[in-house]
């Protein structure tokens, strides 16, 4: 039953965007994006020998208050359940958000609040 429920959820729906809980102004911090996604390459076969269709995340974008932090153009070789960590400076509080789309058209997004003390 649980397996059936899990199988019904499209890939790329579950994600985490991890930032420190509270930051001081000017502090450097790491933002880590984790997406639960098989990143199927199209080169693997299942137990019956059938080729598993390719489905990797084609596009991912990370924004802070709608300003670009990074954009992934090619993510061919990222491992399953990819993780991407980048460095940012805490200037002001705001919203960090990530959006992505895979080859099968599944889209996902996640956002998290960045809290900077007194800003």
């Amino acid at each position: 039953m649980a397996d059936a429920v899990i199988a019904a959820i499209p890939p790329g729906r579950h994600a985490r965007l991890i930032v420190p809980r509270l930051l001081q102004r000017g502090e450097d911090f790491t933002a880590r994006l984790l997406i639960q996604h098989p990143m199927e390459t199209g080169f693997r076969r299942d137990d019956t020998g059938k080729v598993l269709p390719a489905n990797v995340i084609e596009n991912v974008v990370l924004l802070f208050n709608d300003e670009l932090v990074f954009r992934g153009r090619v993510l061919n070789a990222l491992s399953a359940n990819p993780s991407l960590s980048v460095q940012l400076t805490a200037q002001k509080s705001g919203t960090l958000s990530a959006h992505w789309r895979d080859q099968m058209g599944n889209v996902g997004s996640i956002s998290t609040e960045v809290r900077v003390a007194g800003a």
Binding site: V69, S85, Q87
Partner: peptide, 17 residues
């Protein structure tokens, strides 16, 4: 992998698998 970096990143550093 090919990533375009915006001006907001404090360091040009990417960690991934």
């Amino acid at each position: 992998l090919d990533m375009e970096l915006g001006a907001l990143m404090s360091q040009a550093r990417i960690a991934t698998n």
